[in-house]
């Protein structure tokens, strides 16, 4: 990892903004793109791991897919400075889309009740595990609202549900968490 950081630092000045990196990456500069990965992957990973219900492999697959899609679609990004938000939506769409497709094959697979371990030093392991045990829809809304800073309108759009449903799922998730953590 340190080697890669050094390579990135050489290719892209430390003060490079997302916009500068995006412009360079559009021209095929993979090192500039790795700078974008360094800047955003850590934040995305925490969201994706929680959306995946604590499945680290799945979260890492989604993270990879998000960056590969971002690379392929960089030309479609109108405002390079908005890369972070655009990438987040890409990643969330991948995560939610895969869950929807998965449901067509195996209907409502029971949430793994084992105790997942976050791939980072957990500040509150009990809460992390309680979130992972939430029913899928409720967990998705809670993670997007509280841990990805999205509003109900945006969550509803991403999940293909009504705004009221998003609010109801959040209410349900919070109540379940309070009961689990009591």
């Amino acid at each position: 990892m340190k080697d890669m950081d050094a390579t990135v630092a050489q290719a892209v000045p430390a003060a490079s903004t997302d916009a500068e990196r995006v412009e360079a990456a559009r021209g095929g500069d993979q090192q500039a793109f790795s700078g974008l990965y360094q800047a955003h992957a850590g934040r995305l990973m925490t969201v994706l791991w929680r959306l995946a219900g604590g499945d680290r492999g799945l979260a890492e697959d989604w993270l990879q897919d998000a960056f590969v899609q971002a690379w392929n679609k960089l030309d479609q990004l109108r405002d390079p400075a908005a890369f972070g938000g655009w990438l987040k939506r890409l990643a969330i769409n991948i995560a939610l889309g895969e869950k929807r497709r998965g449901r067509l094959i195996s209907v409502d697979v029971e949430v793994d009740a084992s105790a997942p371990e976050p791939p980072w030093p957990a500040a509150d392991l009990d809460l992390e595990r309680a979130i992972a045990r939430l029913p899928e829809r409720s967990r998705q809304v809670l993670v997007l609202f509280h841990l990805s800073d999205l509003g109900h309108a945006e969550i509803a759009e991403l999940m293909g549900i009504e705004t009221g449903t998003s609010k109801a799922q959040l209410h349900r998730a919070r109540n379940l968490l309070k009961e689990m953590l009591a």
Partner: peptide, 28 residues
């Protein structure tokens, strides 16, 4: 109390070390 604990959750982690290599291979 729930809000306080949710706010305190980790928001940024170290990116998975092997992931970039896999991404690089795919975008190459």
């Amino acid at each position: 109390e729930l809000d306080r604990r949710l706010d305190a959750l980790t928001r940024i982690a170290e990116p998975p070390p092997d992931n970039w290599t896999a991404i690089e291979r795919r975008i190459r």
